[in-house]
Nucleic acid binder design. Sequence first.
RNA 1: UUGGUGAGGCGGAAGGUCGCUUCCGAGUAAGUCGGGAGAGGAAAGUCCGAACGCCAUAGGAUCAGAUGCCGUUUAACUCAUGAAAAAUGAGAUACAGACGGGGAUGCUGCUUCAAAGCAGUUUCACGGAAAGUGCCACAGAGAAAAUACCGCCCUGUCCUUGUGACAGGGUAAGGGUGAAAAGGUAGUGUAAGAGACUACCACCUCAGGAGUAAUCCUCAGGGUAUGGCAAACCCCAUCCGGCGCAAGACCAAAUAGGAAAUCCUUUUGAAGAGAUCCGCUUCAGCGUGAAAACCGGGAUUUCGGGUUAGGUUGCUUUAAAGAGAAAUGAUCUUCUCUUCGCUUUUAUGCGAAGAACAGAAUUCGGCUUACAGCCUCCCAAAGCUC
RNA 2: GCGGGUGUAGCUUAGUGGUAAAGCUCCAGCCUUCCAAGCUGGCCAUGUGGGUCCGAUUCCCAUCACCCGCU
Length: 133
Amino acid sequence: MGAPVGLPSSQRPGFRLPHDRVLKVQSDFEDLKQNGERFVTRYFIANWRIEPQGTLGKYAVIASKRLGNAVVRNRVKRLLRETYRLHQHEFSGDLTLIMVARKAMQNKKLADVEREFRFFLKKTGLWVSGAES
RNA sequence: UUGGUGAGGCGGAAGGUCGCUUCCGAGUAAGUCGGGAGAGGAAAGUCCGAACGCCAUAGGAUCAGAUGCCGUUUAACUCAUGAAAAAUGAGAUACAGACGGGGAUGCUGCUUCAAAGCAGUUUCACGGAAAGUGCCACAGAGAAAAUACCGCCCUGUCCUUGUGACAGGGUAAGGGUGAAAAGGUAGUGUAAGAGACUACCACCUCAGGAGUAAUCCUCAGGGUAUGGCAAACCCCAUCCGGCGCAAGACCAAAUAGGAAAUCCUUUUGAAGAGAUCCGCUUCAGCGUGAAAACCGGGAUUUCGGGUUAGGUUGCUUUAAAGAGAAAUGAUCUUCUCUUCGCUUUUAUGCGAAGAACAGAAUUCGGCUUACAGCCUCCCAAAGCUC
RNA sequence: GCGGGUGUAGCUUAGUGGUAAAGCUCCAGCCUUCCAAGCUGGCCAUGUGGGUCCGAUUCCCAUCACCCGCU
């Protein structure tokens, strides 16, 4: 699990996830909630939409105040962001995705979230690459 | 040594891989590469203040609000030196802060016949109850210029001659009620009693002394007048304009409307000559109809205000954490610590789990709350050893 | 970041400083063949910690939890 080690930096796929990939516009959130697809797992709720070919996919992570205090919310958001970053080559890139954290995600490790994210990709047919295991 | 109270401090360490924000450098630019920096003691709660900013504001008073023993002291901030935000020096202000002192209060111990005194310690939002109003349930005779229930004493009457009953009067020493009963204790005095009188204490007033002050001490006099509650209304003294970085400043574009100035147009409308107006000609229209100005319409410019999750700034500095719904992370290895299980005589070894509370948003000080574990100091206790 | 409000029985609400009230709920009994309804009785509370006071749900302070507004 994790990033592939041993390859030169020019050959392995990039795992960067700069800050401008974050979805910010309010109307996009409402549009996705109205018209997008929806899938619920144990740890998070996913809203997504396939964008036209060539556009760079965006993402957003939501942790509501009911989840816990600021430390818990930051931890949950970081785990979801890390999961998206490490698995961003396993589905088509032109995907706008919103992940809403659920209460069961408190005190979980990265491996648990990764397993759930993989389950979500396979179940909804978004799993493209399949090269890694 | 153990567990405990109080005070202070620390808040896991090193490395690998993949990432995020920002700065510097390389690079035409992008991608990229190298280097630097990147949460706390409480960043939290927002309880109390201050800086800073805008608006308002002659001066005074009232209302409302806050504070309330005394002294000393402390931040951002401002000024000076300085290349400088660093550092040093100076100045100034604040809190329910810190330190020290005074007073009151409860508890314990000792002394004392007692009142009280001394020592230790707890607590205190600690101006005024002899300016006024109000309240003090229940109980109790009486709860504030008070009161005669049981009692005590005197006088009178009666007869059952008992220290009896009734009537009148005196009396706050005793009993009882209550949180609290109108100075306390001892004595004189008296029919019984009473600050009625005396001594000491307490209270009040004046004078002197000590102390920066709060306050304390001493002397003299007064003679009980002054119950408690102001975290009840209130009185006195002091302070006090409001809103808050979502404050505010600058800039930009679009949109609708406002004001001013200039120009054009119009006298039913259109066309023509003419620099323009008046006027004229032609056509259409109207019962007839002239001139000037205003109003109206249009264009340009300027001004001022509003709206927009607009931008920059305020703002985080040249020695840099930081402005975006908000980064400071994820994971692995080793070490450290704690707990549990197994093994071992023990030491130890192996395995597993865990390592708190908690995340900067203009800045600063204080307070409060949360916090696994560890370290240091002080205090008292228990056990062991010398 | 700033401002405001509320905590009383299991729930919804009362309550002048002096024994904390009502309705629904729950439990037991009566009534009924049984249930429901009805009647009788009972259980259960001032968020927490201090202070003022003889005495606090009430007054004051601190704290905790929850709710709302400003954009």
